[in-house]
């Protein structure tokens, strides 16, 4: 409980810091005043239309990725599982890339995220068709890996056939993941789906605890394997699909955060879920603050930073786990 309280406090703090950062120099207090009570001039608009959606999306996507990562690790009983594993984000990215390539993304404001959502939905449909109602967790991984590599090949093909280097560069930059220049309409697109997905995932806690003993023992403890898989895949897809659609591919949050927090919750999958959601939100908010502080003039991409920080952190964890003889 103390961990949850501390993480909540950290997230709240980072949320406020995120709100007070931007090219327009305003004191954090004045900014908050303008956000809450409005006022004259451009400040309330800057706060409501630029900074608020960015901070909300950081919270939402970070939290979602942390939660989805913890749930998938619990389900697959593998600390190396991450939300990208089931291929939904890859298919979402493919949808987005096609939207950029065909000009759909510039035809109307939500063209890109909607195309990405369609891609993600297609990915889930393929996953469920392949992994089937009776498949085990191994089938799910294999199907996910196959779909993810197919999506990767599709993205490479679009880049390959790209008529000019500018389109290719735009695709590359989008793939790196970012929260810059997102609007409230992005928030309204992602929020309901991600909340629904999170509710589905959070409800799997007890079943994930039971899975600690293996699939058979869990089934004998009253867990329905088919229902759990459906609930988990649908929940993770509803989180990862919209997250990819509005922010691009952001790696390592869903992998590293559950890993860091696991010892703090006594390794219990059910207790890891909320902790990892808060931890993910904190990590992404912090990373999004960092990209604005490190090189404010160069638009450092969020996904690049999470990977640059996340990968060495992960190596360190592997090193520590190996030294402890736990891997």
């Amino acid at each position: 409980m103390r961990l949850i309280a501390a993480l909540s406090l950290l997230v709240a703090l980072l949320f406020l810091v995120s709100l007070s950062l931007g090219p327009a120099e305003v004191g954090s207090l004045r900014g908050l005043q303008a956000l809450l009570f409005g006022g004259d001039g451009p400040l309330p608009i800057v706060m409501r239309e630029i900074r608020l959606p960015r901070a909300i999306l950081g919270l939402l996507i970070g939290g979602g990725l942390g939660l989805a990562g913890a749930a998938l690790q619990g389900y697959l009983r593998n600390p190396l599982a991450e939300p990208q594993l089931i291929g939904v984000s890859g298919m979402g990215a493919l949808g987005a890339v096609i939207a950029i390539q065909t000009g759909l993304s510039t035809a109307f404001a939500l063209g890109l995220p909607l195309a990405a959502l369609a891609g993600a939905a297609l990915g889930v449909a393929a996953l469920m068709a392949l992994a089937g109602p009776r498949g085990g967790s191994v089938t799910l991984i294999l199907a996910g890996v196959a779909i993810a590599s197919l999506a990767g090949a599709g993205i490479a093909l679009v880049l390959n056939l790209s008529p000019n280097p500018y389109a290719a560069a735009e695709i590359m930059f989008w793939l790196m993941g970012s929260l810059a220049d997102r609007s409230m309409s992005h928030v309204w697109l992602a929020l309901p789906l991600m909340v629904l997905g999170s509710a589905l995932v959070l409800a799997t806690g007890r079943a994930l605890d039971a899975l600690t003993l293996g699939e058979q023992a869990a089934a004998a403890l009253g867990v329905s394997p088919a229902r759990l898989r459906w609930q988990l895949v649908a929940g993770v897809a509803l989180i990862v699909g919209p997250a990819t659609a509005v922010a691009g591919a952001i790696g390592f949050v869903g992998l590293v955060v559950p890993h860091i927090l696991r010892p703090w919750v006594g390794a219990r999958p059910s207790r890891l879920l909320p902790a990892s959601a808060l931890g993910g939100a904190a990590m992404l908010l912090a990373a999004d603050i960092a990209v604005r502080l490190i090189v404010p003039e160069r638009d450092l991409k969020l996904g690049v930073l999470t990977a640059i920080v996340g990968a060495p952190l992960f190596l360190h964890l592997i090193w520590k786990t190996r030294a402890g003889g736990r891997l």
Binding site: R77, L211, L213, A220, A267, R326
Partner: peptide, 20 residues
């Protein structure tokens, strides 16, 4: 049911294990 596979997937405490 005590299955043949004696899997304990996560480093939980004995108390938490039994509480499952």
């Amino acid at each position: 049911y005590l299955p043949q596979s004696r899997e304990i997937a996560w480093p939980v405490s004995v108390e938490v294990l039994i509480a499952l």
